[in-house]
Simulated assay, not measured.
Amino acid sequence: MTITRTLRLIPHLVAMFVRTKFEYPGAMLLAWFSQATSYGAMYTAIALIVTRFGTLGGWTWSEMALLLSFHLLAYSSGASFSFTQFRVMEDMVRQGTMDAILVKPISTWVYLVFSGLNIGYTGHVILAVGLMGWALTQVDIVWSLPAILFFLATLLSGAVVVCSLMTMIGATALVWVRSRHLYQIFFGFWELARYPITIFPFPIQLMLITLVPLGFISTVPVAVLLGKPVPLLGGWAGLACLLAGPLMALIAMAHWRWCLRNYQGAGG
């Protein structure tokens, strides 16, 4: 299938999935509200702790608010294209339904991503944008066109990091059959990335920048914007933020293709 035809199909895939979700608007709105409330309560607890002690690892509450909002917005943007779609790949492989998707006249990755585009992250996005809007009025950032472009580019790069990691985890099911347990590891590091990585021991800092580079959806880009030092990366932190997403996308593409080549079906 040509790229042009694939691009024309994407809006139809998204529209069909969104229509199924809007069949039960009450449940959908309740889910958005519960998600926003859950994160809001968590952030309130963090705010109380930070304001009580003044700073957390040298970060004030307004700076932490920017970090938390950046972390949530980058995550929800990337996960909406990957989490629910690839989390079920283990089931699709075991049940044999993955075989039917592989023979569809469209890119398998495109079909999986856009036929299940998760609008359930709307609550995350609303909360993140609201908190970010407040935080940006409180922190001391010298805005310029390069700074604005850097802010937007690193937010996109962080979302690509999340999408790439989740794609790789899901694709692993094509070879190992079981892959869902890897999401538990992912979310363990994701929880750590919610805080400034400088508060963690060196091995964890290293992992959050290299092996599981979730530091690029929170601490690293926000620290660059605020003029804070970034461990391990130093003056290269800004460039690393911009390259993290594209590099992870290339790695995810290679992993995805390798897993497809080695997929043997539900029967092994």
Score class of each variant (00 low, 15 high):
I3H: 13
R5S: 15
T6G: 11
I10S: 11
A15E: 13
F17T: 09
F22D: 10
F22T: 15
A27M: 03
A27D: 10
F33Q: 08
S34K: 12
I46F: 09
R52S: 12
G54N: 06
G58F: 04
L68T: 00
A74S: 10
G78M: 03
F81L: 14
S82K: 02
E90R: 04
L102K: 13
T108C: 05
T108N: 10
V110G: 05
L117M: 09
G120Q: 05
H124V: 01
A128Y: 01
V129R: 03
V129Y: 01
L136V: 08
T137H: 03
A147I: 03
A159E: 02
A173V: 13
W176C: 06
R178A: 13
S179T: 10
Q184H: 13
Q184D: 12
A193I: 01
T198K: 02
I199M: 14
P203G: 14
Q205P: 12
L206Y: 13
M207F: 15
L211M: 15
P213W: 14
G215D: 07
I217R: 08
P221G: 04
P221I: 04
V222L: 01
V222H: 00
V222G: 00
V230I: 10
W236E: 09
G238H: 02
L242I: 04
L242V: 08
A244H: 05
P246R: 11
A249W: 06
I251K: 08
A252F: 05
N262Y: 11
Q264Y: 07
Q264N: 11
G265R: 13
A266F: 07
